[in-house]
Design a protein around this nucleic acid. Structure first.
Length: 913
RNA sequence: GGGCGGCUAGCUCAGCUGGUUAGAGCAACCGGUUUACAUCCGGUAGGUCGCAGGUUCGAGUCCUGUGCCGCCCACCA
């Protein structure tokens, strides 16, 4: 009889498509509003919104697989799981992207009006912005796309602007003329976080400035930026620097454009660097700017916004780019006789993360945020209201908050949230009296003009958990169930955006909710309770994936070739906690092999008989328990152990291991190990014999397999949703169109116990001994062995029951057994609770086995010596805990016995040692 | 200049509060199977736990120092 109806292998492309459709059709990705209202507990994850300009990469795959696992598992626990998805408008990148796109169509963005440009950008976004989210569907992500949010959506924008206005009203946002990081390519200010430093080899030039009133006498300064000399407004020295006491209060000539500038004293100058004298260019250096402020110096901005020099830099440099201007300025200085010397110098240069060019410290008028409630943001993490996994990132977070600088919020771009500030037309913009700050603008709008700048993209991202859930609009918050889903449960993201995003979300949340919700505890207003930091996906040589190296695989192609489940398996199983991931396609092959094996285990089950018509867990357990034997009991216990361990590793809750959770890899490994080693290699092999010889137990045997498979499929479902769903259907475990991730995990421990399926201590020992004996006997069975098994019962041993004897022989390959009085001393033997086993040997010890016995003997003697030494040590006996001492005693006893046995064998073989 | 992480088998990593003979997967090697398993199973070998001290009855695990590798932060022109 052949019941097999399944294909031979898992055809993932058909199944993925069919299954996806079915999940969507049945609404299994939608949030169950009825359930929320009925009081079920709620679980939410905010997906880090991919940029609209983004291209799907391995990092997305990993990050979203992990979130998907958490969400599906939450559903399986019976919680109402909500996974917020959406996209980020991606300020600068998007503007650059669209400009490029327009250029390729022969259109010049710079000649367009704001409105015209935005129309193009919006069209581009609507066409391309969601691509990643759609591609993620291929991976199986179960987020609810009907609730996706884009950061420029009306409601969300409203939230962002409301945040700005509120922060302004509370005095945290101010407008100021200060030095900012200027990107000369994008022609906008950027935040400190968008600048990374790179060590660059350059020169330190020593330049002399002649004193105005004492020709022939000079003061020398050192600089790396001679092109900014035109911006010099003073020379500063440290007030305690005795070398320069005479120079103070005098004036010297700026070499070019030639002009007299004062020599001043300021504490900020380092005596030990260079000559100890510093040229002050307030428009081109943050330190100089501060010094300038203190001494009321003018600001001479010698540079244009595109990084070229202007007239103030001297007419020789005007219009020349800053790089070329540096070379030129040195030539000029040399001609003027002002260049004293030059030496190689290595310095840290700020690079714009966006355009890759050196940033320019530039004086400009911008909006800044003085971070509010840093104390609360710190406490949230320090006091454990938000927990980081791995924990060490807490230090990075706290350190950043401790050294925080004001945040330059405004960007000189078109794409983004336009700053909600209006200036009275024709009036002084410096004067706050002429400002209007609100979401809707002034009533007499004809008298006002709006600020042309937009907000930093990350400012809007900081509101993600608030804005997506409808804050600050009461009605929206009600329909989006803010009160149920906030605080969200877990944030899954990369440690590289702790500053950009994580810390800022916390800051905004505690600032706004701390005020609105009076009397609430900090733990109720944080945006998320846990943050899981993923590693960076690197190639198998540990290199960062990059286009130029060509080492970044195309995720879609991988999904095409291996299937989503294999890709997910491969990613998860190469994810160590808190370290970077070395991606190797080999892991995807392992994933595929695992899928094939899982598929075939289920196929084998169906080959033995039709699927059960019991589709509920309870009757499945009952059927499995009816007539179960010691092996079934042991399997049930092992299943429970895997069930519990796997869940604890992922979901936490283990005893004495409080912080251990989110161990995706270990959790999956536990299941794989159970499936392969316990279920397939032992239990199914045992069942093959059982099905052949014990026809009357077939029903129970298959029921037991069903119980194990259905539990396993459920546990694996979050990791590999497609194949498990398909097998679940094929095996008839659920009702038609039932989404596996919505089927609640059973209370397995209770059910097994209630049905007397769990093994006793004795049974566990027996099966362990059985499997040990099987392993050892297999190991010593030569290939093609056709002798028989010798069995010698010892006086102290327990009876070797039929229930162990028959399966043992069957699993050894159906060899015969001979009961003997005594196992000969010269053969390798296996000791079990039932007696001593050996394979009948035709000849004496081979050289090989002789060597083995000698090795074993040496090891036994080492152990004997080690344990004797311990037990002879009075301090050890006095101080070590009882169980450790007993362990040592047992070890000694066992090894002494082993030694005797091995010696006996060697003697029996006539060998002398 | 600060800070963080890594260094355990050829490779990638486990190893929780110090306690039996340091583990897994992959690769290697040997053997078997190809009527569940585009495979699978069984087995073998492989480690002075970066180095040096210290604490302890006992250290991969704790402390101190140190060496490499990587990352982050920092206004010395």
């Amino acid at each position: 009889m052949d019941y097999a109806t399944m294909e031979k292998t898992f055809n993932f492309s058909d199944v993925e498509k069919r299954t996806s459709d079915s999940w969507l059709r049945s609404g299994s990705f939608s949030v169950d509003c009825a359930a929320i209202d009925s009081g079920r507990s709620c679980y939410a994850i905010m997906m880090p919104p991919p940029n609209v300009t983004g291209v799907l990469h391995m990092g997305h795959l990993l990050n979203n697989t992990l979130q998907d696992i958490l969400i599906r598992r939450a559903s399986q626990r019976g919680e109402v799981a909500f996974w917020q998805s959406g996209t980020d408008h991606a300020g600068i990148s998007m503007q650059v992207r669209v400009e490029k796109d327009l250029l390729s169509k022969g259109l010049d963005a710079k000649k367009m009006s704001r409105e015209e440009f935005l129309r193009h950008a919006e069209r581009w976004r609507d066409e391309h912005g969601d691509i990643i989210l759609r591609q993620l569907r291929r991976l199986g992500v179960c987020c609810d796309l009907t609730r996706k949010v884009h950061t420029l959506d009306r409601d969300y924008s409203n939230c962002v602007l409301r945040g700005f206005v509120e922060l302004y009203r509370r005095g945290h946002i101010y407008r100021g003329r200060r030095i900012v990081n200027w990107c000369p390519v994008s022609k906008t200010a950027i935040s400190d976080e968008e600048v990374f430093t790179r060590e660059v080899d350059g020169h330190l030039w020593r330049i002399r400035y002649e004193l105005v009133d004492e020709p022939g006498k000079y003061i020398e300064v050192c600089t790396t930026r001679p092109e900014t000399i035109g911006g010099d407004v003073a020379i500063a020295v440290n007030p305690n620097d005795l070398r320069y006491t005479d120079f103070l209060g005098k004036r010297c000539w700026r070499p070019f454009p030639r002009e007299a500038i004062p020599i001043i004293a300021d504490e900020a100058v380092d005596k030990s660097f260079g000559t100890g004298a510093l040229k002050i260019t307030p428009a081109h250096s943050a330190v100089d700017f501060e010094i300038g402020q203190r001494h009321n110096l003018p600001v001479r901005d010698a540079m244009n916004e595109d990084g070229t020099m202007n007239e103030l830099a001297g007419k020789e440099l005007a219009g020349i780019d800053r790089g070329a201007a540096r070379v030129k300025s040195i030539e000029i200085l040399r001609e003027l006789g002002c260049l004293v010397s030059s030496e190689p110098h290595r310095s840290a240069l700020g690079i714009s993360e966006r355009s890759g060019v050196p940033i320019e410290p530039r004086i400009s008028e911008q909006w800044f945020l003085r971070y509010p409630h840093i104390d609360l943001a710190k406490r949230a993490v320090e006091e454990g209201h938000i927990r980081f996994f791995p924990r060490r990132w807490e230090k990075t977070y706290i350190h950043w908050l401790n050294n925080i600088h004001d945040w330059c919020l405004s960007r000189q771009l078109l794409w983004g949230h336009r700053i909600p500030v209006w200036y009275r037309i024709g009036a002084d913009r410096q004067d706050p009296e002429n400002w209007h700050v609100s979401i809707d603008g002034p009533a007499d709008s004809e008298n006002w003009e709006r600020d042309g700048d937009v907000l930093d993209t990350w400012f809007s991202s900081a509101f993600w958990p608030l804005g997506t859930l409808g804050w600050p609009d009461d009605k929206l918050m009600e329909t989006r169930k803010f009160s149920k889903f906030y605080p969200t449960h877990t944030l899954v993201t990369g440690p590289d955006i702790i500053f950009f995003w994580v810390a800022r979300m916390v800051t905004m949340a505690v600032t706004f909710l701390g005020n609105d919700l009076k009397g609430k505890n900090l733990c109720e207003i944080v945006p998320f309770r846990n943050v899981y930091f993923t590693g960076i996906v690197r190639d198998n040589l540990g290199r960062k994936m990059s286009k130029s190296l060509g080492n970044s695989p195309d995720p879609i192609e991988l999904l095409d070739r291996y299937g989503a489940d294999s890709v997910r398996f491969g990613l998860v199983s190469s994810t160590p906690l808190g370290q970077d991931i070395l991606f190797d396609e080999k892991n995807l092959e392992l994933g595929r092999n695992f899928c094939t094996k899982l598929w075939n285990a289920c196929r084998f089950r169906l080959m033995q008989g039709p699927p059960s018509d019991r589709c509920d867990f309870a009757s499945s357990v009952a059927a499995a328990a009816d007539g179960a034997d010691v092996f079934d009991h042991q399997m049930a216990s092992t299943l429970l152990a895997a069930f519990t361990t796997s869940r604890e590793l992922l979901e936490g809750g283990g005893q004495g291991k409080s912080e251990r959770r989110y161990l995706f890899q270990a959790s999956l490994q536990t299941l794989e190990h159970f499936f392969r080693d316990d279920f397939c290699d032992f239990y199914v092999e045992l069942c093959k014999w059982r099905l052949k010889e014990l026809g009357n137990r077939k029903g129970q045997t298959l029921a037991m397999q069903d119980l194990i498979l259905r539990t396993l499929l459920q546990l694996l479902a979050p990791f590999m949703p497609f194949i498990t769903q398909e097998l679940w259907n094929q095996l008839n475990f659920g009702t038609a169109d039932e989404a596996l991730h919505l089927v609640q995990l059973p209370d397995l421990g209770y059910a097994l116990k209630a049905n007397n399926l769990l093994a006793t201590e004795l049974e566990l020992e027996q099966v362990a001994a059985f499997r040990m004996a099987l392993t050892q006997l297999r190991a010593m069975t030569p290939s093609g062995f056709c002798g028989s098994l010798l069995f010698g019962q010892l006086p102290s041993s327990k009876p070797f029951e039929e229930k162990f004897r028959r399966p043992l022989l069957a699993m050894l390959g159906n060899i015969g057994v001979k009961n003997v009085e005594k196992i000969p001393e010269n053969v390798a033997a296996v000791d079990t609770p039932w007696g001593r086993f050996a394979l009948e040997a035709n000849d004496g010890l081979s050289a090989e086995s002789f060597a083995k016995i000698k090795d074993a003997l040496a090891l036994a003697r080492r152990n004997i010596a080690a344990n004797r030494a311990k037990l002879d040590d009075g301090t050890f006996l006095a101080k070590a805990p009882q169980n450790v001492v007993e362990g040592a005693r047992r070890m000694l006893k066992e090894n002494l016995e082993l030694e005797a046995q091995l010696l006996g064998r060697l003697e029996g073989s006539g060998e002398v040692i």
